[in-house]
Design a binder for these strands. Structure first.
Lengths: 92, 92
DNA sequence: TAAGTAATTAAGTAAATACTTAAATAATGA
DNA sequence: TCATTATTTAAGTATTTACTTAATTACTTA
């Protein structure tokens, strides 16, 4: 996982929508796909990118794969962003 | 400016490096370009994307264009990210 | 006014990205 | 075992992106 993979993963609207959905709790790949117009395969590819960026966990249970948020990694992005806002505060 | 433009702007390594440079103070387009291997035109295009996302301000003074950070817009990203981390805290 | 400098815009290109459909893998249950 | 369901992987394609060089615009100063 790199900060670049992270920002790249977050740069797609559909992937951000997936993350938003997962805020309400774990979901299977299929459940996630139902919320989109694009194909299940397309969603699977987006999930793979999110998984590689470690923004989500994937756990297989039976024939389903459950996806959940990994809040830890969001903190990496938070740290990056905060650098810019803290400067603003110092100026005041 | 949209949250999408914002994340798209942040998804490029060179653009994030430009923002990092600007943390140390305002710089002209030329000064910025000196820190990169790519052409001045390439940097100008990156600056244009950052400007459209409102991540930077551009002010022309004489024949120079001075670029500076717009910390306000970083807060938009901050807000988006914090949604995910606040959930984490609630769980604890 | 003409030459030089700073920066952007235009036009073209190679690589990356987001999708598609079809095929493969894996688990379930009649 | 075989058909069904969930998901991923493969292969192909259209669009977007990040660059390049050349031309243009705007300003400065000799």
């Amino acid at each position: 996982m790199s900060i670049n993979d992270l920002f790249k993963a977050l740069s797609d609207e559909n992937r951000r929508k997936i993350l938003d959905l997962l805020r309400n709790g774990d979901m299977t790949a299929g459940d996630i796909a139902h919320h989109f117009e694009i194909s299940k395969a397309g969603i699977s590819q987006h999930l793979s990118i999110l998984k590689n960026a470690e923004l989500v966990y994937a756990v297989k249970r039976g024939q389903f794969v459950y996806y959940s948020l990994n809040a830890t990694v969001f903190q990496e992005v938070l740290k990056w962003i905060i650098q810019f806002n803290s400067n603003k505060l110092e100026e005041k």
